[in-house]
Design a protein around this nucleic acid. Structure first.
Lengths: 238, 238
DNA sequence: CGAGGCCTTGAACCGGTTCAATCCTGGTGG
DNA sequence: CCACCAGGATTGAACCGGTTCAAGGCCTCG
């Protein structure tokens, strides 16, 4: 169950077998969600956190005028609402974008890990600070052009999915709608559509039928000015 | 030195005297910075983190076209680059917006705290997840109108400064330029200026001479649709 | 007293939005 | 088996919030 999380953590630091066992043992059960189903709601006290096994989920909030803002998109291996362990409730909703399976980890288990496994604790802390780094990159991304924003999102998802073996240089499965992309980039669906057409015509990328087909990864990276260092994928003792 | 950090942490949970002593003992020295001085630079390995004692500092990055994007504004009591303890380097620069004093905490000390003080560790972890929550709120804010964005920034700073006794309902000192506000809201200085004029004419707020004078806090909160729950200022065991 | 920042205001411009219509596709029920 | 329907994708045209460019004004500091 925790295989993809381990793959991710091991990309950034060494994880001992006993730590891996500890983590696997912390999972109490699995949960499945249909597309659009709410995984957890803002401002509701939580005593579990959830690890995404497969599918895509988003952190999102609903603005006053009813528009949905996607704050982050999570991929398999992400400990989606680990923040809730420290925060005790979330400030946003977590919603399934596709069919999704998540492993449930009671905070009681996390509490015991923090009491007895300092290194594992630092790894989990690390995972939440990477989330924060991704948020910052989104803030910077939002101040750029529509093309750059959309390209950046595709580059980021590619890099993160590659870590868990779900993407390569040529593309990846991404069963989202243009509306999802619009809500994630703060653009209108209409403009996302035009932007995708431009990218297709430029031979950069073709997003169709739930799949991202990358024509020119280097061009895409340049367009997005994507620098993956903010994902902290290099290996260092933590 | 750690008084304002303690005030902040104690707002969210109980901190024992021995924990407070441990935290105070972790500070190795003080550093002062002039306005615009760089506190730490992106992508440079770090072995200390810094706690803001007084003044304002920003997390920021420079976009390809030379524009500066402010990703966060920190107020006294904030453990500005605590993230670097987990990340080992930062993905952005930290720059003094005003004259600023910071307390330096070696990662070695933080390491020892994580090894022997689980509750204090969770408190520090908590502090970084609140930073992430603030980032998310900025993402949502950026998708709204110029008025709402600027109003939201003023509301947030007021709420955070109030915790450490540096603001009340009527206003607070904020020695930033309109250019700083522009870079923090992804607006142009020209438009920030027009927005501030509108807010002044509406009797909501007067930002002049390095001070925010609030005329109608409730109106401002409404305009910003500011909901302070994302700052996690309620007291809970963590 | 001159220079450099910052603030302020006007006018033209433009990237992205809004509104509206049409197409396409997969799923459903008769 | 096919008509129908709903949700998403696509395209055109008018519009608008915020940008850009340009010109002063004001204040502080050397």
């Amino acid at each position: 169950m925790t295989a993809s999380l381990l793959t991710r953590l091991r990309r950034s630091d060494e994880v001992t077998d006993s730590e891996a066992v500890r983590l696997a043992g912390a999972v109490s059960r699995m949960e499945s969600f249909a597309p659009r189903a709410t995984v957890c709601r803002a401002h509701v006290p939580l005593d579990v956190s959830k690890l995404l096994i497969d599918g895509f989920v988003s952190r999102q909030c609903t603005l006053l005028d009813g528009r949905r803002q996607i704050l982050a998109i999570h991929v398999p291996g992400d400990f989606v609402d680990l923040h809730a362990f420290a925060l005790k409730y979330l400030d946003h909703d977590v919603v399934a974008l596709t069919t999704a399976r998540l492993a449930v980890v009671p905070h009681e288990q996390l509490r015991e890990i923090t009491d007895s496994e300092p290194h594992l604790t630092r790894m989990l802390w690390f995972a939440t600070t990477v989330d924060a780094a991704i948020h910052r990159e989104w803030i910077a991304s939002l101040s750029r052009s529509a093309m750059a924003r959309v390209a950046h999102l595709f580059c980021e998802l590619r890099a993160r999915l590659e870590v868990v073996g779900l993407a390569d240089r040529s593309g990846y499965a991404l069963p989202l709608t243009q509306i999802d992309l619009a809500d994630a980039t703060s653009l209108t669906p209409v403009h996302v559509n035009r932007t995708l057409r431009q990218m297709r015509e430029a031979g950069l990328l073709d997003f169709r039928a739930g799949r991202v087909e990358i024509g020119d990864l280097d061009g895409l990276i340049r367009l997005a000015s994507f620098d993956p260092r903010y994902l902290y994928l290099d290996r260092t003792a933590r």
